[in-house]
């Protein structure tokens, strides 16, 4: 079995004709946790949206291969079915649609198998308990009136129900207090195994202590300029992005 899950080569992406990603390379193997760090405006969220297939993000060059297949042209729902999941930085509110109904529909779509109502209720309850979410959330409208932290937890709940091969977490730690970060990190670790990988996109290192990543990448101006281990996060923490930019921006 091939170990490689995600292979990005020379990826260039435009939004409204402005180039944001300028030739990005990234390899993620099965079972690995990767962190991408970078200052605001470096292209982190663009990478997340592009990997999920947002129609506004136009790939002008390069390739994205997922699980051995070129996915450049795939729509978001096809990517989800292949096993990509994005935890949104700003999850959308959908009035009139309950968390439970939505997740059951999503699970049915992703797996291609009808989800029995009772069996699904049980699964949902189990996953919600692990995330210390109150049962009432299941019958609330999706993200409507949720606090920032509740929305993020709801994203992790969706991830744990859908069990993707690659979970991309876009700034999932922002807006969370210490306890919530621990719960979210545990949720993330629970899904990771030999075949599932995690890509965390963040500009802080709050989640790092819990996650024990395999690799840390620094994203500057649309390119990955440095890849290393935990020492890179420490470097950013101690010196700040301004110094990091000076050191690596020539690359």
């Amino acid at each position: 079995m091939a170990r490689e899950l995600l292979n990005i080569k020379g990826l260039k992406v435009n939004i409204d004709d402005k180039e944001i990603l300028k030739g990005l390379d990234l390899n993620i193997n099965k079972g690995e946790i990767h962190i991408i760090m970078g200052p605001n405006g470096s292209g982190k969220s663009t990478l997340a949206y592009t990997l999920m297939g947002h129609p506004k993000y136009e790939i002008t060059d390069g390739t994205i291969e997922f699980d051995g297949e070129l996915i450049n042209e795939m729509k978001a729902d096809e990517r989800a079915k292949k096993g990509i999941f994005l935890s949104f930085q700003y999850p959308e509110e959908i009035p009139g649609v309950t968390v439970e109904d939505f997740l059951r529909t999503a699970k049915t779509s992703v797996t291609g198998k009808m989800q029995g109502i009772m069996a699904f209720k049980k699964l949902l309850k189990e996953k919600m308990d692990l995330l210390e979410m109150k049962e009432e959330y299941a019958s609330r409208y999706l993200n409507l009136g949720f606090s920032g932290g509740e929305k993020k937890k709801n994203e992790i709940l969706q991830m744990s129900i859908l069990e993707p091969k690659l979970a991309i977490l876009d700034e999932t730690d922002s807006g969370l207090d210490v306890d919530a970060i621990r719960i979210v990190a545990e949720g993330v670790k629970r899904i990771k195994d030999e075949s599932r990988s995690i890509l965390v996109i963040t500009h802080y290192n709050k989640l790092l202590d819990y996650l024990e990543p395999d690799y840390i990448h620094i994203l500057l101006d649309g390119k990955i300029v440095k890849t290393g281990g935990m020492e890179l996060a420490k470097e950013i923490d101690e010196e700040g992005y301004e110094n990091i930019k000076l050191r690596y921006s020539h690359i």
Partner: peptide, 22 residues
């Protein structure tokens, strides 16, 4: 896009939004 990223086709996603409004 949010709904489609969870595996729903465009039509299914629209249906869900409409049902939500109804």
């Amino acid at each position: 896009f949010y709904l489609m990223s969870r595996g729903l086709s465009e039509r299914e996603a629209k249906k869900l939004i409409i049902e939500g409004a109804f």
